[in-house]
Design a protein around this nucleic acid. Structure first.
Lengths: 188, 188
DNA sequence: CTCGTTATGACAGCAACTGACATCACCGTA
DNA sequence: TACGGTGATGTCAGTTGCTGTCATAACGAG
């Protein structure tokens, strides 16, 4: 079938996760990742634009879940209901795809490094921008669209952090509800 | 007075702003910035931890305005009122310190480059974390503290973008009010 | 004037990233 | 079956951000 060993991208991503977990992000060199994957440094940069990106391979899929979630919300839904449904859709997909333990391992790598935290923030900001656009397509005006999207992403961030905390048993959608529920009395 | 030419940091920051505006961020080399400031590349990295940081010199002062704003809000204020007051305090300080035109020039540099956008996002996230802590010190529980802080920062971001849009005449505090006002009906 | 402190310079070096070109494995086709 | 095309990979040289180390210059205190 394959000409060379198949799934070069996946091998690189797995090698990176392993090495980052073992020795930390900064202590791991791109050449080492490529070597473990049986490839060269140059080939790494053909699959990932930079060293950080190897940890964010699923971000496009992640964002699309939010966008589709907003788009597919019933016509009668309010903006916040649509964003909430979108966040839960993405949350469920995240859990089903790799699970809580994988998310925890990946999270440990990211929070330990400022560059990676920056990359994660811009990915989430991209999601917010995309959701705001989807809301405007539903007829929501600015600044409501942006504020609602930001509110949804904030809830997702807060819920996600709690979801990965030690001993937390609740599901991610439940925690999203909790985060959003705490906003109503605050604003009132 | 000064041993060498005074205010090396300020000279570096100004040289950087000029060069970034003239040729763009990526096309400008740290050696070029240092040369224009009459210093060497090595000295640049003694004053700024990396090339990006030269555009974020005032970020500590910026964050402290938010924190102090929350801390000094009247005892009777709600969490959201405290955060709103903090955002307006920071907004006013920002305007008085360098003005809208400077903010526009700096913004143009940042939005043109992904690395700089990432840096800006983590600075704002730091502010949110600091505000959440200030709120907890006021007795606000989680996840309310984090959500309220995030809400305030979202309002600031949205308002800030509008503030710098061409032809916008309203003040930044006014735009913050507008952004926050748009949330209440959404949540209700 | 001397000594200690502090900011800077000079230099070597690593690692991230890029461009240019060669090479290799496969596939379709004559 | 030989041939040529195509896409993924390898090789190599080069730039730049960033760091460690040591030397040097400017100032203040005594």
């Amino acid at each position: 079938m394959g000409r060379w060993e198949p799934n070069a991208e996946g091998r690189l991503a797995q090698a990176a996760m392993e090495l980052f977990s073992e020795h930390g992000y900064e202590q791991t060199t791109v050449a080492e990742i490529a070597e473990r994957a049986g490839l060269t440094e140059r080939t790494f940069f053909r699959h990932y634009t930079d060293k950080r990106e190897v940890l964010f391979a699923g971000s496009v899929h992640f964002r699309e879940n939010f966008v589709v979630g907003v788009e597919q919300a019933p016509e009668s839904s309010t903006a916040l209901q649509a964003v909430t449904a979108a966040a839960k859709r993405a949350a469920t997909a995240l859990d089903e795809r790799r699970g809580r333990e994988f998310a925890r391992a990946r999270r440990a790598i990211i929070v330990a490094n400022a560059e990676l935290r920056e990359r994660e923030l811009i990915k989430l900001a991209d999601v917010s921008v995309a959701m705001a656009q989807a809301l405007r397509a539903r007829g929501v005006d600015e600044p409501d669209a942006s504020m609602t999207a930001e509110l949804g992403m904030a809830a997702f961030r807060v819920a996600f952090d709690r979801w990965l905390a030690a001993g937390e048993r609740r599901t991610l959608p439940e925690l999203i509800d909790e985060a959003l529920a705490s906003v109503a009395p605050v604003v009132a």
